[in-house]
Design a protein around this nucleic acid. Structure first.
Length: 800
RNA sequence: GCCUCAGUGGCGGAAUUGGUAGACGCACAGGACUUAAAAUCCUGCGUGAGUUAAAUCACGUGCCGGUUCAAGUCCGGCCUGAGGCACCA
C-alpha cells in the first residue's frame, strides 16, 4: 500500500537529527517523567513484550509533549549479569564486549520502532562512569553503618563451583548444569534493609501503585506485632526468648520448640542428656533443602531435649523443650512457645508426640483440631474474665511489661539484603581488607574500582569470585596504614545498579555528583513507572529502600522514588502459552516491523486488549491494524481543502478527541484505537472530507502510529509537524448530539426505542413513550404503577 | 491455608460505574469488481422461535440466591483460572 520501510526510516532519522525528543533540564514547562524498566540486553534480542510496554508509555509521552509538557522518557541498559559472564567464560572474551554487541542490537531494534526515547541520556550500569556512583553510594551505606559483613548460607553448585541465587537453584537443582545444589556458609556483605521495614510500609501511602503491587509489598515485608516473652531455664541462670502474636494463650503453653540451629544446643551440650540424638537431628535438618523444610504437607519431626526444662513465667509451670525444623532460625528468636490447643502447627506436633493440649479459650473441639477462633478465656489466671482476643492480648502485654517478663515486639519477614555475589561481572564492592586495619573503604577519589581486563573468568574452587584469581588486581595498599592489603573480590548483585538508575537519567553526564540537586528538584518523582509483576517486590523494594536511605542522608529532597507503578500484561504465543524458544512460539518483532511496519505493530500491540492483562499474539490481528493504517492512507484522496470540520461529524470528532485524550491518559489504549477506527469508518462514508477532519484524525493517531501520520500530514500540506504542534482540544459544547435514542422499558424489558431531541423534557418523554405501538401492546388495559424517567436515556414503566 | 484480581459470542475484547449487553477488530459466510487470484468494496454474523422478508418473542455476561422499575455492574453463598505470600509463631 505504502512503503512503510522508507517512511519510517525517514522520520526516525529526522527526529534524531532534530533532537525532537530530548528533554531539557532547564525548562519553564511543567515536567513529566515516564519510565520503563531498562532491559537486560540479552543475546536473544528484543521481545514483542518489550514493544508493548515501550510503545504504551511512548504513546503517553508523545501526547504529553504535544500537550506542552517537558517530558523525560529515557532508556538504558541493566547490563551486568550472569549470561554475559557465562558467555565470556566460554568464549574467552571480556563480558563488556558481549554486552556492547547486544546493546547495539537492542538499540537498533528499539530505534526501528520509533519510540521517542531521549537517547542523549542513555546509560549502562556496566559503564565505569555509571558504576562509579553505584560504588560511591555503597560507601555511603558503609559510612552510615548500614553495610556489614556476616556469615550467610548460600546456594552452592559443587559442579559449576559457583554460588547461585535462589532463582537459579530452584528445586535444589543447579539451573546451569542440572546437578544438586548444596548449602555453604560464606561471609557476605549485607545492607540493613530490615531497618527500613516500617518506612517501606508507610511510604506506600505516598505512592499510587496498583493495589496488587502494594499488597505484594506488604506481604513481602510481613510485619507482625506481638510480644517477646522470657522463659527461664530451670536450674540455669538463662532465659529462652520467644516471639508470639498470641500472648493471650500463655496459660495454654505445654511445650517449647527451638529451631535446630538454635544456639542453646551447643551452649548447653553438657546439660542435655540426649545430645547425640539432638545432634543427629541437627545434621539431618541441615541436609534438607529449603523446600523440603518448608513443605507444609510433610509430617512434623522433632526430638525432645532431655535434661532441660523451661518455666512458664505466668504460672511457674515446668515445660519441656523440643527441637524441630518447623521453627525457623531466621524469624523471631528462633524459638517458640507452643500452644497446641490454639495453633494448628503446635496441635499437629502435640498430637504426633503425645503432648498435653490445654484449652484456654472457649469454643471449638480440641479433640479434633486446634481452635484458632475468638472466645472467652478459661484456665488463664490473670486473664480469666476476658471475653475476647483483643482484650486478652492487650491485658497480657501490660502484665508482661509490668512484671518484666516480656515486652511488646514487632517482627518482620523482610530480612537484610545480601549484597555480595561471588561473580566477575558486577560492580566491585569498593572495600579493602588489611590484616592490621581490617575493612576500610576505598577512598572516594579512587573510584571507580574498575573490573580488570583479563581473558579468563573461571570461578575459583573455593567459591570465591573469579576476581580472587587476578592477583595484581586483588593486591593493593591499605588506605589507612599504606601497608599490603587486598581488595574485596565480591561484586554487587544485579539489583544494585537498577536501584538508582532513574536518578541518573535526570543528570546522566554529571561527573561531580551522581545527580545534581537542581535536576532532582526539577524532575522529582517518576510519574509513571512501568514494569512487570515479577519486579513488584524485590526490585521495587530495593529501589525504594535505596532511595529512602539517600533521602535520609540529605542527598535527595523527597523520600519515595516512584509515584505510579503500572504493570503490563504478557504477550503470549499464538497458542496462548508463554513464548519460549523450546516451544517454538516466539515472535520476533523485527520480522513484524519488516513485513507490516512499526506503526502497524505499535497499533496492534496497543489494540490487543487490556494493557494490564496477558494477551495471545495473533498475526491476523496485526494484519487488521495494518489494514486500518492503509485505509487511513487512502482517505487522503477525499480531501477537499477546507479548514473546518465536516458539520455532520463535528460531534463525533469532538467526542473522539475527548475519548483518545482520556484513554491515553488512563492506559486504555485498546479503546483509544477503536474510537479512531470508528471515526475513520464515519469519515470513509463521506464523499469528501475536510483537511481539518483529516489532520485531527492523524494527530490523534500520531502517538500510536507516529511515522505514517507525520508522513500524511506533510504529504497533504496539513500544517506543522504533528509532534511539534499542540494536541487537539475538544469543544465542551459539541460533545452531545442533538438527538438521542430514548429507550422505553415496560416491567423491566425493553419494548421500544425512538430517536428524540436532546431537549425533550421528562414529561414529554413519558408522553412519547406511550405512543410507541409496541409499548401500547404492553400497557393498554393495565394500571400504571410506577414511571421512572432517566433524562436523555430512558423511560421505565411498571404496569399491573 | 491466607491475600489480590479475573470469568461476557467461534476468537481478542467493549459497556459513560445501576440504565439499549456484545462497541471496535479478527475469523467465518454471501455478494460486487476481476479471465482468475490477491487487494478493495458491500451485506450478514450470540442462541432459539417466528416470517417470503420483516416486525416481534423467549433465553443469554462461570453457578445458586437476593436487592431494584432496571444487575455484566451492587449484596450473600459457591465453582474455576491467574498472580502474590506461606510451618513467619
Amino acid at each position: 500500500m505504502y512503503n512503510h520501510e522508507k517512511i519510517e526510516a525517514k522520520w526516525q532519522k529526522r527526529w534524531e537529527e532534530e533532537k525532537v525528543f530530548e528533554a531539557s533540564n532547564d525548562s519553564d514547562k511543567e515536567k513529566f517523567y515516564y519510565l520503563v524498566e531498562f532491559p537486560y540486553p540479552s543475546g536473544a534480542g528484543l521481545h514483542v513484550g518489550h514493544v508493548r510496554s515501550y510503545t504504551a508509555l511512548d504513546a503517553m509521552a508523545r501526547k504529553k509533549r504535544m500537550q506542552g509538557y517537558n517530558v523525560l522518557y529515557p532508556m538504558g541498559w541493566d547490563a551486568f549479569g550472569l549470561p554475559a559472564e557465562q558467555y565470556a567464560i566460554k568464549n574467552h572474551i571480556h563480558p563488556s564486549k558481549a554486552v556492547e554487541e547486544n546493546i547495539k542490537t537492542f538499540k537498533s531494534q528499539i530505534k526501528s520502532l520509533g519510540i521517542s526515547f531521549d537517547w542523549s541520556r542513555e546509560i549502562a550500569t556496566t559503564d565505569p562512569e555509571y558504576y562509579k556512583w553505584t560504588q560511591w553510594q555503597f560507601l555511603k551505606f558503609y559510612e552510615n553503618d548500614m553495610a556489614y559483613k556476616a556469615k550467610k548460607e548460600i546456594n552452592w553448585c559443587p559442579n559449576c563451583k559457583i554460588g547461585l541465587s535462589n532463582e537459579e537453584s530452584e528445586g535444589n537443582v543447579c539451573e546451569r548444569c542440572g546437578g544438586p545444589v548444596e548449602k555453604r556458609e560464606k561471609e557476605q556483605w549485607m545492607l540493613k534493609m530490615s531497618k527500613y521495614a516500617d518506612r517501606l510500609l508507610e511510604g506506600l501511602d505516598k505512592t499510587e501503585f496498583l493495589e496488587k503491587i502494594k499488597v505484594a509489598q506488604v506481604n513481602w515485608i510481613g510485619k507482625s506485632e506481638g510480644a517477646e516473652v522470657d522463659f527461664k531455664i530451670k536450674g540455669v541462670d538463662d532465659i529462652l526468648k520467644v516471639f508470639t502474636t498470641r500472648c493471650d494463650t500463655l496459660y495454654g503453653v505445654t511445650f517449647m520448640v527451638i529451631s535446630p540451629e538454635h544456639k542453646f544446643i551447643s551452649k548447653y551440650e553438657n546439660l542435655i542428656t540426649n545430645i547425640d540424638e539432638i545432634k543427629k537431628y541437627q545434621r539431618e535438618a541441615a541436609k534438607k533443602t529449603e523446600i523440603e523444610r518448608t513443605d507444609m504437607t510433610k509430617e512434623k519431626t522433632g526430638v525432645k531435649i532431655e535434661g532441660m526444662m523451661a518455666i512458664n513465667p505466668v504460672n511457674g509451670k515446668e515445660i519441656e523443650i523440643w527441637v524441630s525444623d518447623y521453627v525457623l532460625t531466621n524469624y523471631g528468636t528462633g524459638a517458640i512457645m507452643a500452644v497446641p490447643a490454639h495453633d494448628e502447627r503446635d496441635y499437629a506436633f502435640a498430637k504426633k508426640f503425645g503432648i498435653d493440649i490445654i484449652p484456654v479459650i472457649e469454643g471449638g473441639d480440641i479433640s479434633k483440631e486446634a481452635y484458632t477462633g475468638d472466645g472467652k478465656m478459661i484456665n488463664s489466671g490473670v486473664l480469666n474474665g476476658c471475653t475476647n482476643k483483643k482484650e486478652s492480648i492487650s491485658k497480657m502485654l501490660d502484665y508482661l511489661e509490668e512484671n518484666k517478663i516480656g515486652k511488646r515486639k514487632v517482627n518482620y519477614r523482610l530480612q537484610d539484603w545480601v549484597f555480595s555475589r561471588q561473580r566477575f561481572w558486577g560492580e566491585p564492592i569498593p572495600m579493602i581488607y588489611c590484616d592490621k586495619c581490617g575493612w576500610n573503604p576505598v577512598p572516594y577519589e579512587d573510584l571507580p574500582v574498575t573490573l580488570p581486563e583479563v581473558a579468563s573468568y573461571e570461578p575459583t574452587d573455593d567459591g570465591e569470585s573469579p576476581l580472587a584469581n587476578i592477583t595484581n588486581w586483588v593486591n593493593t595498599t591499605c588506605p589507612k596504614c599504606k601497608g599490603i592489603a587486598k581488595r574485596e573480590t565480591d561484586t554487587m548483585p544485579n539489583w544494585a545498579g537498577s536501584s538508582w538508575y532513574y536518578l541518573r537519567y535526570m543528570d546522566p553526564h554529571n561527573d561531580k555528583e551522581f545527580v545534581s540537586k537542581k535536576a532532582l528538584n526539577y524532575w522529582n518523582m517518576v510519574d509513571y513507572y512501568n514494569g512487570g509483576m515479577e519486579h513488584a517486590t524485590r526490585h521495587l523494594l530495593y529501589a525504594r529502600f535505596w532511595h529512602n536511605f539517600l533521602y535520609d542522608q540529605g542527598l535527595i529532597p523527597y523520600s519515595e522514588p516512584f509515584n505510579k507503578r503500572v504493570a503490563h500484561g504478557m504477550i503470549l504465543g499464538p497458542n496462548g502459552e508463554k513464548m519460549s524458544k523450546s516451544k517454538g512460539n516466539v515472535i520476533n518483532p523485527d520480522d513484524m516491523v519488516k513485513e507490516y511496519g512499526a506503526d502497524a505493530l505499535r497499533c496492534y500491540e496497543l489494540f490487543i486488549g487490556d494493557y494490564s492483562m496477558d494477551a495471545a499474539w495473533s498475526e491476523n490481528g496485526l494484519k487488521g491494524c495494518k489494514k486500518f493504517l492503509d485505509r487511513i492512507y487512502r482517505l487522503k484522496d477525499k480531501l477537499n481543502g477546507s479548514n473546518e470540520y465536516t458539520k455532520s461529524l463535528e460531534i463525533l470528532i469532538n467526542q473522539t478527541i475527548k475519548k483518545v485524550t482520556d484513554d491515553l491518559e488512563n492506559m486504555k489504549y485498546n479503546t483509544a484505537v477503536s474510537s479512531l477506527m470508528i471515526l475513520l469508518n464515519e469519515l470513509d462514508k463521506l464523499e469528501e472530507i475536510t483537511n481539518k477532519d483529516y489532520r485531527t484524525l492523524l494527530h490523534l493517531l500520531n502517538p500510536i502510529s507516529p511515522h505514517i501520520t507525520e508522513e500524511l500530514n506533510e504529504m497533504c500540506n496539513l500544517g506543522e509537524e504533528l509532534c511539534k504542534s499542540s494536541w487537539p482540544i475538544y469543544d465542551e459544547n459539541k460533545l452531545i448530539s442533538e438527538t438521542f435514542t430514548m429507550v422505553v422499558q415496560v416491567n423491566g424489558k425493553v419494548r421500544g426505542k425512538i430517536e428524540v431531541s436532546t431537549d425533550t423534557t421528562e414529561e414529554e418523554m413519558k408522553k412519547l413513550s406511550k405512543e410507541i405501538d409496541n409499548v401500547k401492546n404492553y400497557i393498554e388495559g393495565k394500571e400504571i404503577v410506577k414511571e421512572v424517567v432517566v433524562p436523555k436515556k430512558l423511560v421505565s414503566i411498571v404496569v399491573k
